[in-house]
C-alpha cells in the first residue's frame, strides 16, 4: 500500500479529515522549504503538496504566480525540488509528499529519469495540472512503475463520465477544484461543493480532497463536513509572501494559521463522530 493510501486509511479509522497544505518549493528562498515542511507536520497536517515552479502557471491566481516568480528568481528547478523532498525524508518517513506542477519541466527532464528520481527521493505522488487523463499515458505508466500515486483534478465542469474515467486512472486521492477559476479564488459555494463531492463519492472509491478558495477556519470546517481532505494553498502562500523579508518567521506564522484550521476541522470531525 502506498504511503498516501495508508495515511488515508489511518485517518478514516480515526474519523479524521486530512489537512493538506500547499507551498511553492523554494519560496521565498530554497532554505525555507524543508524546515517549513517539518513545522507544518508539527502543526497537524497530514500530507504535503509541494508546488514545482513553472514560468507559465495557467491554473494559478496572482498569489501563487508571484510565489512561482520568487522561486524561479532563485533558480529553483525540478531537481532542486526533488532534493528538498529527499532532505525532508531524512527526518520524516511518515508524512506523504506530492508534487503539484505543470508538465514541461518533467518533459524536459525525461519521464523515466523523473519517475526514478522522484521515487528515490521519497516522493509519494504527482499532480500534473495540465495533464488530463486523455494525455500523458507514457508518463503515467512510468510513474506507476515506480509506485508513485497519480492524483488528478476534478472540477465543477467534470461530467459523470469524466469523473468515472478519472476514477479509473487516479490513485491516492482525487483533488476536487471547488470553483471555476484559478487558485486563490474566493466565493466558494459550500452547498454546491457538498453536492458535487457527494456525486464524486457515489461514482469513485478514492478519498476526495477539496481545494481552491479555502482561506479561513470557517470555510475549512464547512468543507471538512463533506470532504476527506481540506487543501489550502494561496492562504498559506500569501502569509509567506508577507514575510519574505523576515523568512525566519515563516514556519511560526504558517503553523499558527494551520493550527487554527486544524482545530476547526477537528471540531467538525468530533461532531460527526
Amino acid at each position: 500500500m502506498s504511503r498516501i493510501a495508508a495515511r488515508f486509511e489511518q485517518l478514516r479509522d480515526r474519523g479524521r479529515t486530512a489537512l493538506i497544505p500547499f507551498v511553492t518549493a523554494g519560496d521565498p528562498s530554497p532554505a525555507v522549504t524543508v524546515p517549513l515542511m517539518h513545522a507544518m507536520v508539527a502543526a497537524g497536517v497530514d500530507l504535503i503538496e509541494l508546488g514545482v515552479p513553472f514560468s507559465d502557471p495557467i491554473a494559478d491566481g496572482p498569489v501563487i504566480q508571484r510565489a512561482t516568480e520568487r522561486a524561479l528568481a532563485q533558480g529553483v528547478s525540478l531537481d532542486d525540488v526533488l532534493d528538498m523532498v529527499r532532505q525532508f525524508r531524512e527526518r520524516d518517513t511518515e508524512t506523504p509528499v506530492i508534487l503539484m506542477g505543470y508538465l514541461n519541466p518533467i518533459e524536459v527532464m525525461g519521464y523515466e529519469t523523473f519517475a526514478v528520481a522522484a521515487h528515490a527521493a521519497g516522493l509519494d505522488g504527482v499532480l500534473i495540472v495540465d495533464v488530463p487523463p486523455e494525455e500523458g499515458h507514457a508518463l503515467v505508466a512510468m510513474l506507476k512503475a515506480q509506485g508513485l500515486d497519480l492524483v488528478y483534478l476534478l472540477a465543477p465542469t467534470s461530467t459523470e463520465a469524466r469523473i468515472e474515467r478519472i476514477g479509473e486512472v487516479a490513485s491516492g486521492f482525487v483533488y476536487y477544484v471547488s470553483v471555476k477559476g484559478v487558485t486563490g479564488a474566493g466565493n466558494l459555494d459550500t452547498a454546491a461543493v457538498a453536492e458535487k463531492v457527494g456525486l464524486i463519492k457515489s461514482l469513485i472509491r478514492l478519498p476526495v480532497g477539496v481545494g481552491f478558495g479555502i482561506n479561513n477556519p470557517e470555510t475549512a470546517a464547512s468543507v471538512a463536513r463533506v470532504a476527506d481532505a481540506v487543501i489550502v494553498g494561496s492562504a498559506i502562500v500569501s502569509r509567506i509572501e508577507a514575510l519574505a523579508a523576515t523568512p525566519e518567521r515563516i514556519p511560526e506564522v504558517v503553523s499558527e494559521f494551520l493550527t487554527g484550521l486544524r482545530q476547526a476541522i477537528d471540531e467538525v470531525d468530533a461532531h460527526v463522530a
Binding site: D130, P132, E134, E135, L154, A155, T157, S158, K180
Partner: peptide, 20 residues
C-alpha cells in the same frame, strides 16, 4: 480525434477546461 498531429498538439489543460 484527440487533436494530435503525430506527437504534437493534444489537450494539455486543467480539468476545468476539458468539458468546455
Amino acid at each position: 480525434a484527440g487533436g494530435h498531429f503525430g506527437p504534437y498538439g493534444g489537450m494539455f489543460v486543467p480539468e476545468t477546461l476539458m468539458h468546455p
